[in-house]
Design a binder for these strands. Structure first.
Lengths: 104, 104
DNA sequence: AAAATAGTTACATAGTTATTTAAATGTTTA
DNA sequence: TAAACATTTAAATAACTATGTAACTATTTT
């Protein structure tokens, strides 16, 4: 990982891109349609997300397919655990409580 | 909440402050001792964390006690869930797998 | 009320970030 | 190999961020 995960996540458009890609993989032009900005700006943001290992890029002919990288999100998970988990057990309890609450 | 949670989290020193405060509540001068920086810089970062509702401030005589705000971390939890949880159940599974792995 | 203590705010500055336009690169097709 | 398509990169610029110094505010103590 070259860039900072946290800096990458700090920008609204980049988080929107992540949530978009979560729906399904996409090409830059396709992504750009969802934004009121240029393709160049989207491309830059894709590079930043890629440098933070948040997304993957696959060449596909003349296109480039971008998708979520499910692997390297450990750093944010770790911080999340340290910060709001106390321990992993606590996070587990939190999740269980929340999912119980949602069942009601 | 005035400021952006994500911008607040995007800076190393601020995340360090959060992790420090997680240990126990502290006064600005006390916090500053842990950093190679000025009290003024710490104070500014405390304001940014407070604006993002990540910490609380309580006046205590001539001092000000800072502590983690456990309530308003929902936004990051929500994004986390959307992004890496698929569902809360998935997060639960992840946590369980990880804590099993750690038991070994 | 003055001095001491604790912390904040203003201002200047250096550094970083985001975006745009324009040029460049890589890939396919004619 | 030239044209077309998909995307990236460069350069310029405007906006924002982080930090230090110094001045200021709030609170307690003498």
């Amino acid at each position: 990982m070259t860039g900072s995960l946290w800096k990458a996540l700090a920008e609204d458009n980049r988080r929107r891109i992540l949530l978009l890609l979560r729906e399904h993989e996409m090409y830059p032009t396709e992504i750009a349609k969802h934004f009121d900005t240029t393709l160049a700006a989207v491309s830059t943001n894709l590079r930043i997300l890629k440098d933070a290992d948040l997304i993957k890029e696959t060449r596909e002919g003349q296109k480039k397919r971008y998708s979520i990288n499910p692997k390297t999100t450990m750093e944010i998970k770790d911080f999340f655990d340290k910060m709001w988990g106390q321990s992993l057990e606590d996070l587990k309890v939190f999740v269980e409580e929340k999912s119980n609450k949602e069942k009601k």
